[in-house]
Structure formats: C-alpha cells, structure tokens
Design a binder for these strands. Structure first.
Length: 612
DNA sequence: ATCCCTTTGAAGGAC
DNA sequence: GTCCTTCAAAGGGAT
C-alpha cells in the first residue's frame, strides 16, 4: 500500500514505478519532460490517499528495495528456459511495433461505447473499455448514457441498474471470483463470443456466463442494502463525489461492484462462523443468489452446512465436527493487488495475442507490460487495488493475510521454499537483477566489479565510473545504484540516479518508446542484465537469432510480431538463467558465446543490424 | 492430484 | 526499519 500512502508515501507507488520505469530503460532526458506527469501522478495518488491509510505510511524507497528477489532459484532449467524464451518471444511480439502494437493501454473512457454499429467491438475501443475503471467511469449525471452503454453491452443489464439483485448474472453460480475485470477480458478479447450472444461462455466449462457489463466487477458481493450499510470503497464512483464516504444509494446507481455487493446466505454463514458477530459485516439484506463472495473459496461450503447439521445431530462427534469446521473455515482470499488486477484484465488479451498459454510465460509478459505502463495507468490499478483492499477490509474486518498462510486453510501446501541460504543462486540472481534489494552482485567475499565481471577486453560493458576508474556503480548497486545497460552507441547510458526522484520518469507518457529505443530497453530485469553482460556494443539495434536451440526452434516465434528484440532478451535471459555462466562471472565465460556454447549447445548468436 | 512456474504487490513475522 | 516469506491469479507442465 505504500504506493498510495499519503504525504511522503504518496509517491510510494511512484517510487516503485520509478524502478519499473527505470527498468524499462527510461533515460534521464525524459525525466524533466515528464516532471509534469509526475506531478499529475502525485496528484492522482494524493487523491487516492485514504483516511484509513494515512497511518500506514511507509517508505517507498524501502518498498522498492524490499521487493524480494524473483523466486527463480529453483533451476528447472528445461521448463524454465522454454518458458522464458517463449515468454520473451511472445512478449516481443507484443511489445514490438510502433510504440506498442496490441498494447494500447489508453485509458480513455469511451463513454460512447466501443461498439461498432453492427455490434462488433472497435479494435481500438476495445482497450478502452477494458479500462472501464471507476476512475474512468461515466461522469456523474450521465446515468442515461451509462444505461445506454450498458444496454449496448449487455443483453440484460437492466437488472443491475434496476437495483435488483443481479441473480441472473450468475445463473450457473459461476464463482464470483470471475476476474474482477472479467468484463473486459470476457467481452473484449479477440476471439470472444460475438457480442450478440446472450452470454459469454466459459472457455473451460463451456457454461454460458452471464453478461458482465464492463464496468461492473463481480467482486465483493453485497446486497444493495448492504451497500448502503457499508461505505462503498468505490464511492468515488458515485456522482456525489467529494464526500469522505460516498453513500451509495440503492437506486439507480450502478456501481462497479454490483454483484459484488451481494452477500449470499452461505457467505453470511461463513462470516458468522468465521468471525465474531460484531465482525461480520452487516448483511441484513442478503440475497439468496447463492453467489459466494468472490474472495471466499468455498469448496466445502455446502458440505460444511450439511455436515454441520449432521454434526449437530451427532453430539458425540461434536468436537470432531468442530475441528472440521475449523478446517472448513471459509478461505477468504487476499484482495488482489494492482498487478493482480492488471493481470486479470490483461491476461486474456495477452493470451489471445500470443500463442502462449502457459501462465508463467504470460505472466512474464504481463510483468513487463506492467512496467511499461504509464504511471497514470498504473495508478488506476493501484487505486482499484486500494479500493479492493478497503472493501475487503470492510467485509472482513477480522481477516488477516496470515489466515491464508499455510495451515490456516490447508488449501495450499507450503510452496516449495526458496533454496537454502547456502545453495542459492545469489550470484545469478543478483547479477540478473541488480536493482533488487539483494546483496551486491556478488558475495562480499568475491565482489565483482565491472573489471572483474567483464575483464579488460570488454571495457565497453563497464559502467561509466569503472571506465573512469571510479567507484563501480554495479558493485555498489547494493547501495542503491543500478547499472545501466549499454546504450545504443555502445556506451552505457547514464547510470540511473540513486535518487528516486530521478527515476520517477514515466516511460511512455510523453515519449513512447520507438522501435529504436525499445530494443535498448533499459530493463534492469534479468534479461537486460544479460544484455549488459553478453551484448557487444550494439550499433543501433541488435537482433538476436537463435541458431539451433531445440526449445526455441520448437516455439512458434512467428506468433510474435517481434521475433527480435524481446526474443533477444528471451534467449539471453534463457541463457543466463539456464547456465551458471553468470553465476560465476568469470571473464572468460562472459566473453563470448563460444564459451556459452561450451555449456550450452550454441543457444545464441548475435546478429546486429541497423534498423534503418 | 498436487505442485511448480512466473509476475508484482501487500501483508505479516522475525530480527 | 529491514528482510524474508507467503499469498493473491492463471493454466500449462511436471511430478
């Protein structure tokens, strides 16, 4: 939540974003250009500051630095390599292009509706509608337009506006955990059922889903009456903005959490059983849609009730039943964070645009996209996430994230925990992601400065200070500095400033990346670090081709419009991740791909070509 | 059937 | 305050 904290923490998220954007290769020149944008974002985030969170200030710097390193310690090289490579390839396809083809995160409220007269969805408007976030919601007083829009989108959305319990929204009791932004994905993703269909169909089950208006989230069901009881966290959507708490009238207003604001009986029982009465949110107007709370996983809910009855009949097993109840406590899931919300929305889109289906690969793409998002765009997700948390907190006052820890519910077993302290790939990890709050690139025992990392014969890869025989920024990255990958001219771009402010440069806000800049994306994520270590001074751009990697050859690189740049990153990252070359960056191993070939069957080859 | 992977962010606990 | 760990979603892949 630091991103949304007020005061000093107001720019926490920005700080985090700073790193992100820095990672994306923002150049310092852009900083000044985007200073205004920063202020805008600051304003936005200031507006996001919630009274309830004012006491939760924390340092954004620490937040950014505390970010745990990627858990990629376990080297299931095979699958991982293919995954990364595939992701990068796909990502390349997604990322490439004039600024970002298929990547229009334009958050313009398309109040007129993105649908073409024939009912089809405008390709460009599609993305807009995906962002039917509350922030972009129809302005107050335009209820009619909303209605019209909604009518155009949903075959039967009237029930929502009519303040009736949206039972029809889940005729098949589809779990409300349907994406928070289900509407966007389900309705606007290429390949979705035609709009004329009465309801979209679950791709898995084939069960028709009730239409979900794009600006409606199925999260946190509360009855309309409950809405009035609980200050809607998204009250800012309500026309009556400006109030500390925006009471949501039960009539006429179609807030973004329509179905969400319906607490069914089962949920009520859950809450009653889970929390003390005083903790259970008011649900006097629970409806009986049977729609469980989206944040509650209720695999055993029905069984619970039935078994509870049985247990009551068998007092001898009362304690056992109690234990069972304990075990069957409703699993209230954590509220989704901003990135999760973003993923939910964009996943289907990415999947549709790529042939990749593996979530891990998709998530990698989404992660990069997330970093590429403008600050305003990210702010929207932060905002929504904050609202989610707020609502979640109101719904489950006694809930704690700890409840979901292993043992709390038992649904998940303890994840494979990271390697033991001694067997970590810290070298690799640190090297691949020096901006993380990890120890210096190397162990304190074996500090690897540029000189040691790349050797004298690759001074072009050295950071500027090193070349100037100054203090190695890479070596001191553990102190907050990060090294910049080589710039297009073969020199290292100016090292990112240590000051977060210097990093607070929106990427594409004012200066969308071009094909020329994108290849040089200064992502400080592993791939780019690999660039740094492996790439010779690139001319203007580098296209990495893969010679004969079985995995890569099997992957449909053609599915990506960009088989080059991100592919390059992908293969490089793959190489880095799969091999221990970078783990122990001996100069010889980092010198050439020939050495790579020694450990790996010629995974890569660099081909430089001019974009012109 | 279960876990892993992969991403970022939030939260909690340990120190 | 910092660091570490877990969980949230997702679904193919591995075990």
């Amino acid at each position: 939540m630091p991103q949304l904290n007020g005061g000093g923490g107001d720019d926490l998220g920005a700080n985090d974003e700073l790193i992100s954007f820095k990672d994306e290769g923002e150049q310092e020149e852009k900083i000044s250009e985007n200073s205004s944008a920063e202020r805008d974002l600051a304003d936005v985030k200031s507006s996001l500051v919630n009274e309830s969170e004012t006491n939760q200030n924390s340092s954004s710097d620490s937040e950014a630095e505390r970010r745990p390193p990627p858990r990629s310690e376990s080297f299931r090289d095979k699958s991982r390599e293919s995954l990364e490579e595939a992701a990068k390839r796909q990502d390349g396809g997604l990322f490439k292009g004039p600024p970002y083809p298929g990547y229009p995160f334009i958050m313009i409220p398309d109040l007129t509706g993105p649908y073409l007269p024939n009912g089809s969805l405008s390709p460009t408007a599609r993305t807009y509608l995906q962002m039917k976030w509350p922030l972009l919601d129809v302005q107050a007083g335009s209820l009619q337009s909303r209605q019209a829009l909604k009518d155009a989108r949903s075959p039967s959305p009237a029930h929502i506006v009519s303040n009736k319990v949206p039972v029809v929204q889940h005729p098949h009791h589809v779990h409300p955990l349907t994406p928070l932004i289900t509407y966007s994905n389900e309705h606007f993703t290429p390949g979705n059922p035609p709009p004329h269909l009465p309801a979209d169909v679950d791709p898995k089950t084939g069960i028709p889903r009730p239409p979900h208006p794009p600006d409606i989230s199925p999260y946190y069901p509360l009855s309309p009456g409950t809405v009035g009881q609980i200050p809607h966290p998204l009250g800012w959507l309500v026309p009556q903005q400006g109030q500390p708490v925006y009471p949501i009238t039960t009539g006429g207003f179609r807030h973004p959490y329509p179905t969400a604001l319906t607490v069914n009986a089962s949920m009520s029982s859950f809450l009653s059983s889970r929390f003390p009465p005083h903790m259970v949110p008011p649900h006097h107007s629970l409806h009986t849609t049977g729609i469980p709370h989206p944040a509650i996983v209720t695999p055993t809910v029905k069984q619970e009730s039935s078994q509870n009855d049985v247990g009551s009949l068998h007092s001898s097993k009362h304690q056992d039943s109690k234990k069972e109840e304990e075990k069957k406590k409703p699993h209230i899931k954590k509220p989704l964070n901003a990135f999760m919300l973003y993923m939910k929305e964009m996943r289907a889109k990415v999947v549709a645009e790529c042939t990749l289906k593996e979530s891990a690969a998709i998530n990698q793409i989404l992660g990069r996209r997330w970093h590429a998002l403008s600050r305003e765009e990210q702010a929207k997700y932060y905002e929504l996430a904050r609202k989610e948390r707020q609502l979640h907190m109101q719904l489950y006052p006694g809930w704690s994230a700890r409840d979901n820890y292993v043992g709390g519910y038992g649904k998940k077993k303890k994840r494979k925990r990271d390697k033991q302290p001694g067997e970590t790939n810290e070298h690799s990890e640190c090297f691949l992601n020096p901006c993380l709050s990890l120890p210096p690139i190397t162990d304190a025992n074996t500090p690897k400065k540029c000189r040691a990392l790349f050797g004298l014969d690759r001074q072009s890869l050295w950071c500027k200070p090193c070349r100037r025989k100054k203090k190695c920024v890479r070596y001191i990255q553990g102190e907050g500095s990060c090294v910049s990958p080589p710039s297009s001219d073969g020199s290292l771009l100016d090292s990112p400033p240590s000051s977060p402010n210097m990093l607070a440069s929106p990427t594409r806000d004012s200066k969308p990346q071009t094909e020329q800049t994108q290849p040089l994306s200064l992502s400080l994520k592993p791939d780019s670090l690999v660039h740094l270590s492996m790439m010779p001074p690139p001319p203007s751009s580098i296209v990495l081709t893969e010679n004969s990697t079985s995995k890569s050859s099997s992957l449909p690189a053609s599915t990506c419009q960009n088989g080059g740049l991100d592919h390059q990153s992908a293969t490089l990252q793959q190489s880095a991740a799969s091999s221990s070359l970078l783990v122990q960056p001996s100069t010889s191993s980092l010198h050439s791909h020939n050495s790579l070939a020694g450990t790996q069957p010629q995974p890569l080859s660099l081909v430089t070509k001019s974009l012109e």
